[in-house]
Design a protein around this nucleic acid. Sequence first.
DNA 1: CCGTGGTTGTTGAACTGTCAACCAAACTGT
DNA 2: ACAGTTTGGTTGACAGTTCAACAACCACGG
Lengths: 170, 170
Amino acid sequence: MPADGGLAVTTDTPTTVEWLTAEQQTHWRAFRGGSARLFAALEHELERDTGLSTHEYEVLVRLSETPDRTLRMAQLADNLAHSRSRLTHTIRRMEEQGLVERLPCIEDARGVNCTMTEKGWQVLVAAAPSHVQSVRDHLVDILTPEQFAALGDAMETVRLHLTGGACHVE
Amino acid sequence: MPADGGLAVTTDTPTTVEWLTAEQQTHWRAFRGGSARLFAALEHELERDTGLSTHEYEVLVRLSETPDRTLRMAQLADNLAHSRSRLTHTIRRMEEQGLVERLPCIEDARGVNCTMTEKGWQVLVAAAPSHVQSVRDHLVDILTPEQFAALGDAMETVRLHLTGGACHVE
DNA sequence: CCGTGGTTGTTGAACTGTCAACCAAACTGT
DNA sequence: ACAGTTTGGTTGACAGTTCAACAACCACGG
């Protein structure tokens, strides 16, 4: 979509920007358009089947992967690439639903430990099959293994570039 | 991220869902995490450099590509994969900024034609170089041409699958 | 100790997107 | 001609996100 500048004809270029070729433009639009529709579809199906948003789902996933199902707010925010503020709001809502709870952190009095409740665990277990199926239906199973692997590798390169290489799991 | 269900150990599976392999999980997480960070970075840089959101930018791009810089609301919404409602709100805001204007449609009295103004055009021309550079910096130029092409091809497959094959330009 | 600066997390206001309800105009079939 | 349905678009209430300001705490150097 945008990367070509959208200028119907590549008119006078005020700066020395190198425009995208027609091919690059096509790929870029496919990537943007495909990603947008894919994430929208996954979001919609998860919401419909389980009542969770993908963000809530991911919070639960991250918590479920630690030994004590607990994570500091900052680590959670970094993992999810969400702002602190956004995470605070999300966690407050999830706490109201009984999916997680917040406890003060002993080692660092500034910190807050976020733990998933038993209910949160059960909600995640109930939601996972549906979501996995969605991901298969709309992405994994419609690509060849090579295509899917190439997709992952390319985006891993992008991620490393953006996080300066120094970054966490996700 | 989620597709593995996040269940630290693949415990008892209540349904007959086929989970993702460790490799698939890795690729899926890379794709989701990389995409999220990439789009966030592009959004942030465009906003910082030009004051436009990527959505507003795309509206202008789409309009700029038609002969008369005009598109029906529904076509615009389809192109962008946005809901009608969302587009109405977006266009109202852009109209207030003088970037576009809405005119009744002659052929179909239900319809509304959205046209980009001269100011809108100039804003787009001014914004494009910066945005193209961002896309190059964070995506196009850090991948090999083959990687980037594979990315585009894969996501085009995804897009076609989601739109039932019958779909527009984007 | 005290102060300075950086980190952690929260808050509230403003903004953006979603959802359901709605109106008006166009098609459809009789 | 005309009820019923579909399409195009808007609206307002609500939910989620961003942003700037803030409070509490750590860490380090005088």
